[in-house]
Amino acid sequence: MAPIISIAKLTKTYASGLRALENVDLEIRKGEIFALLGPNGAGKTTLINVVCGIVTPTSGTVRVDGHDIQRDYRVTRSRIGLVPQELHTDMFETPWGTVSFSRGLFGRPPDPAHLERVLRDLSLWDKRHDKIMTLSGGMKRRVLIAKALAHEPEILFLDEPTAGVDVELRRDMWALVRGLRASGVTIILTTHYIDEAEEMADRIGVISRGRLIVVEEKTALMKKLGKKQLTLHLQEPLAEIPAALGDWRLELKNGGSELDYTFDAGESRAGIASLLRRMGELGIVYKDLNTSQSSLEDIFVSLVSERA
């Protein structure tokens, strides 16, 4: 399928000398949900802001459906909606006033029926005449989404859409994103939450220190990223891992008093049961156990250090 966004050799160096993006090449497919993951300051927002026209690139090209974002900025911007990370709204306006403003700003004639649909979909209809300053944080984020959808964009950028929102709103947003994708909208979202990317995305890109280090189908990437760990606190320390436990990825820690078993999140948990059974047969007794899942931040650090 032809890409709807093509980014080639994109570099951005700010006046301060900070290189936020370095030779980024990326293609977004029409109709997909693409999740851009990365730690704070990785360059996610800069990348989005360049495509949307808020930040001027230092070099490289960005094309939206074949149109250059600088030469044909009217065409490209009219097709893009942006939900920013921060709650930037005019606090004295009403939801109805601000979505009407957004639709006009993006060159679209008034369409009260469309705006009503958007506000109803986002559960904002009953609040349409309230001042935005009186709305809760979650409602304000919904207003930002409504503004981005007011001009019926074909591409929607969601920059950390669920940062700091409650579980219910997160679920609502996921449902909304799925609905938009079903209607043909291409969605690019940035997030810190691996479960969000897992739940939503078709493909995932990982960015760190301005470099796009991984772009893969979700299923392939989740196998790489989704590591889990079982830690067994042993009754008696071991000098070394017995050869009979060679089938499992084990590591001794804390002077042999802890045994770590690392396995992929997608892997069958049967490995744990067989490991414990085998340990029992070998007379290795444990007094406690716990499981943990590596955070996305840990995984990023590991990915970055691998490529440094």
């Binding site: 808020i54 930037h88 709204t89 700003l105 503004k147």
Partner: peptide
């Protein structure tokens, strides 16, 4: 207030 992002990302000259 930061709302300038919308004007800068809009198809207005």
């Amino acid at each position: 207030t930061g709302t300038i992002y919308e004007v800068l990302s809009a198809p207005v000259s």
